[in-house]
Design a protein around this nucleic acid. Sequence first.
DNA 1: GCAATTTTTGACCGTTTGGACAAACGTTAA
DNA 2: TTAACGTTTGTCCAAACGGTCAAAAATTGC
Lengths: 204, 204
Amino acid sequence: MDETVKPRRTRIQREKRELILEAALEVFSQHGFRGATIDQIAEAAGMSKPNLLYYFKSKETIFVTLIGRLMQAWLAPLREMDAEGDPATEIRSYIRRKIEMARDFPRESRLFANEILQGAPHILPLLEGELKELVDEKAKIIREWMRRGRLKKADPYHFIFAIWATTQHYADFDAQVRAVLGPDRGGEGRFEDAAAFLESLFLA
Amino acid sequence: MDETVKPRRTRIQREKRELILEAALEVFSQHGFRGATIDQIAEAAGMSKPNLLYYFKSKETIFVTLIGRLMQAWLAPLREMDAEGDPATEIRSYIRRKIEMARDFPRESRLFANEILQGAPHILPLLEGELKELVDEKAKIIREWMRRGRLKKADPYHFIFAIWATTQHYADFDAQVRAVLGPDRGGEGRFEDAAAFLESLFLA
DNA sequence: GCAATTTTTGACCGTTTGGACAAACGTTAA
DNA sequence: TTAACGTTTGTCCAAACGGTCAAAAATTGC
């Protein structure tokens, strides 16, 4: 008795929904879920509030759709970590990709951070299911690399946490990073500097 | 023509203001500034809303008072880093203290994280002033340690960022950490494991 | 005891918010 | 032309919100 029906959508529906999600990303990432208003999102998407609610039936629906889709993009770099590849190269390119994402998609990172900060009310099952399974799998790979002496021995879970924390820091705490580095060192170069630093930190 | 007057407060005023700040910490750290309501804070403090507004004249005043005070506590561990001490010992105890704070004061950490995520609207001057000066000073010390070969060479600013990011991760992203570690490894021991991991990471 | 002062509260107000709804508008195809 | 369907909007509503105010209650100083 599965009552979920595959929504058959017109071209306009698909386009407008994308438009709304893009606007919602902008607004949610700046103000958080509670701080954002439907009116703000509607205006950013260039349409009226009732019109927006024609495409998504509630503010929460927009948010859940957005963050669910985001999770996938967010995990992609970790998925690509290859057990058959050279350990140092795999770690290095994972760090690179994460730093590039912090630089190129800071709104996505902040939206995600906000959700976790509040205790992940909308995506806890995803974290306990899909995310945990993926990390378990990759932790095994990393542990095997360490066992073979290809990587310095350490707890693979905290190793992964540390990569997440340090790379996402440059998106989530951008205001602080820029304030501390000052006008001279706070330019775009900070991501390159960060990448270089993190590579040497994790591949010492 | 300084119009600020030193507020002469009664015992009751001092006590109630503390009570309110404690309640506000609880509520703000859970819901963020916009998500929190004065009613929630008043209820958590065991008083009526108008009564609360008798002690703080607005929601924003509560928030600013709270986060201003927090900043000081938050920077204390870095302040204690001693140029004359043994570098490895100094770094190790800095990491320890930060991890202990993530464990014992997660609400403070999350409130702070939330503020920075939104672009630090209330404390940007503090970050650009007091914080920057402190970090500049400590970065110099660390650089000197590295120059003398007492610490592995690296950018001292990103070194400090990495310690912040990794330690605070265990408070701010607690929901994710616990979800990934699972019921068995997600217990209180995770902070000990994290401390051990981070020491070896930063003092390799 | 009493008057002055501090503390507490119920009632209230204007605004913002998420969302509902019916009517209007546009498009398509017989 | 017109019926059917998809899209858009103006208007409205109830709840939640931050904050005010006058008056009651409690406390303090004499």
